[in-house]
Every structure is written in structure tokens, then in C-alpha cells.
Design a protein around this nucleic acid. Sequence first.
DNA 1: CGCAATATCCAACGGACGTTGGATATTCGG
DNA 2: CCGAATATCCAACGTCCGTTGGATATTGCG
Lengths: 217, 217
Amino acid sequence: MERMTTPRRGPGRPRRADQRATPDVIIEAAAGLFARRGFDAVGMREVAAACGVDVATVHHHVGTKAALYECCFARVFAAESEALTRAVATARDGLAAGPGPAMAALHELVDVFIDFLEDRPEVTGLWLRRWLEPDRHAELDQRYSEPLYRAVEQVLAEADAAGVLSEPQPHLAVRSLVWSVHAHVVGLLSGANGARQRREFRAFAHRWLDRMYPPPA
Amino acid sequence: MERMTTPRRGPGRPRRADQRATPDVIIEAAAGLFARRGFDAVGMREVAAACGVDVATVHHHVGTKAALYECCFARVFAAESEALTRAVATARDGLAAGPGPAMAALHELVDVFIDFLEDRPEVTGLWLRRWLEPDRHAELDQRYSEPLYRAVEQVLAEADAAGVLSEPQPHLAVRSLVWSVHAHVVGLLSGANGARQRREFRAFAHRWLDRMYPPPA
DNA sequence: CGCAATATCCAACGGACGTTGGATATTCGG
DNA sequence: CCGAATATCCAACGTCCGTTGGATATTGCG
């Protein structure tokens, strides 16, 4: 049984064109369902229905339900990592250029993060569930999420050491802002927020940054 | 299977006064399980086992599973409301006494909140799940949680109007800090935090307050 | 003591779930 | 055009779930 790993389409490998439910389609649909309602509340038949296929087809492509869940997490965390690593690197570069560019780089980083999460609200659903069931996603955490947040924390720690910023516990500051953004997106998930709420929250986030990292006198 | 050494009461141990599975005991045990693993992942047989009784006994006392879940939420939110309303009233009184006492009252409020959540980490588990499945707890939200947070926001809004504090979006500030505290407690839930982490987070929370609400010049 | 109450357990029901074997349809390489 | 491959579906299996009816034992009340 060829499962879950997308069939290798290297040169010479045959390829079937009548596929209505590619692993990508299934994972995308399942990620949304899992984010909204959680692992146990989503059935394989429901995932199949969301893709317009039978439940056996889903199993044929992704294997077990646990494997499908892990694929959703891997996809989501990989997307987040891809979206943020460049912004983190830019912020780190900005630190070398003095307090002004450093703060500008941090503001840019915050904007990139908010943009990403507002674009893909299902990330917040899966991310919060990861915290609520930590044993279920431990290894994915180590692969994708932890290095990213550790990089952000290190940027802030370097800024602190250079005297640019002034938070002795940068990891707590990062966590505080990250959770605030997720809280904002949770409001988006429930449909309670509109364009005005988005604008207000973004302004708040930047105000948060200015106040938590006041310019040194 | 009956162990002869165990002093277990045989089947049919009635007496309203000293039943082994009172509704209180069941709700307490179920709240912990629901907080840790969620509604769908916890079975009634598991709740019964946690109380040392049969599943039919649980049903006899609490009715359906959904009713049990609602009881857990009601209990948890009522406890939070009870723990915080007094502190909120005190903070409101402090606002009339000028910037100094106002800030002291807010710091006290933060301490009460952190104390409460650290004492009952299962509150965080249920609270976060409420946000992830908003339709499931809508009416309990309106009864318990919303009035409380609205009171806190109003305290900050009054402080803002009186020129004591300076955050134009107090509800976002409240939400930011509240989520930060829950993030901290999530760390406690997963056992990753110790006494030192608690001290550091508490210091951070107060630093957060000082920076988000700097003393007016 | 006898009777009504009731807290408890046992066994079971219907349904939903994850999963699978096998049949069918559709496409590709040759 | 043929045979191999595979994506899809149908039907089913075994398991677990929430829930319930009924039997049993124990107390309170008269």
C-alpha cells in the first residue's frame, strides 16, 4: 500500500490522472476540521465528505487517523516556520544597526506574524490544541515550533545584551505577545471580529511592543 | 471482582448522607479529566473509574454527559467569578484614590488572578477549550465569564477616563494579560514549570503592568 | 420489624467510530 | 488495444461509546 508519502513522481514513475483526492487536498480539509473541533470530534467519514470521496479513499491515501493528524501539524508548522524564519533573520540583522532599526525590525516581525495568522486562522486552532494535549505532539513541537520560537527569543536576548532593549525575560515577552495574537485570531475563528477589530488589534500589538521595549534614555 | 481485603461497601450502598459518589465528587473528577483531554476524549466509564464507581452510577447522578460537562463549566466559572469579583471591586475603589493606589490595586488584582489560576490549573484547560469550541459554551459564557471580564475592562476604562492610565483599548490589554497568565498555567499543566518559573512569570506580569500603564508624567 | 427509597452494579442495546478486504472503474505504459 | 496499476467505492468487522432497564443491597422512617 502506497500511503501518505506522495507517490514519487520521479522520471519514469507512472502517474495516475484521475485522482480527485490528493493527499494535499485531504490534509488541507482535515486541518481545518481538526483546528475547529479537535481530533476526537472529527471522524474520518467527515474528512472524506469534506473532500467528496469515500472514507476508504482517505485511508488509502493517508493511512491512519493519527498519521493524518500529524500531517496536518507538520504542514501547519512548516508553513509557519517558512513564513517567519526570514522575518526573524531580518530582525536579527536590524539589531546590529542600532536601536532605531532594531525596533523597526521587531515591528516588522510582529506584522509578518499577524499577517500569517490572520491569513491561516486554522493554525491557531491546531497550535492551541497542541498546548492542551502536549504529549500528543511532542516530537512535532521539537521539529518545527521550538526552534522558531527559540530563534525569536534569542533575537530579543541579543538585543537585551546589546543594551538596545530592556526585558530580562525575553521568552516570557515573546510568549505573551504570541498568545495575544492567537487570542486575537481565536476571535476571528469564532467570527466575532471584523476589519475594525483587526486594525485595532494590530495597533495594540505595536503599542505593546513600544511599551514593553521602551527606547533607552 | 471483589477483593476480600478491601473494605469496599458492597453493591447497593445507599444512604443519601454518605454515598461514595456525590455529584460534587463526580464533577470535580470530571472537570480535571475534561480540562486535560477534552470533552470527546473522556468517556463516562473513565469518569466513573476516577470516582471508583460504575458508569451507571455517574449517569444516575449527573444525567447525560453534556449535562456533566456543563456542570464542570458552571462550577469552574463560578469559582473564578467568586475569586475575582471582590478583587475587581477593590481595584475600582483604588482608582478613586489617585494614580498610586490605582496601580497598587491593579497589581493586587493581577496577583489574585495568578494565585487563583495557579491553584486550579484545570480552569485554564476548560477556559481554552471554551475558546476553541465557542458554540458549545455560549450560554455559560454569558452567565459567568463575560460579566467578569467586562467588569475588569470597565475598571481600566474608568482609569483611562480619569487620566490615571493610558491604554486606549483596555479590553485588548486585559485580554493580552489574561491569555499570558493562561499560557503560564498551560506550562504548569504540562509539568514543565517549577517554583522558579512561577516567580519569574509573576515578576514579568507586574513588569508588564508597569510598562503597559506607565505613570503619567 | 416492614416498607419505601435509592445508591449502586451488571448486562445489554443501538449507534458511531476507525479500519479493511475486495470489487469496480479509470488511466497509463507498451 | 491489452494488461498492469491504482484511485475509488461498497460493505462489513470489531470496538468503544453513551445510555438504560432491571436486579440488589442498604438505609431511613413508620
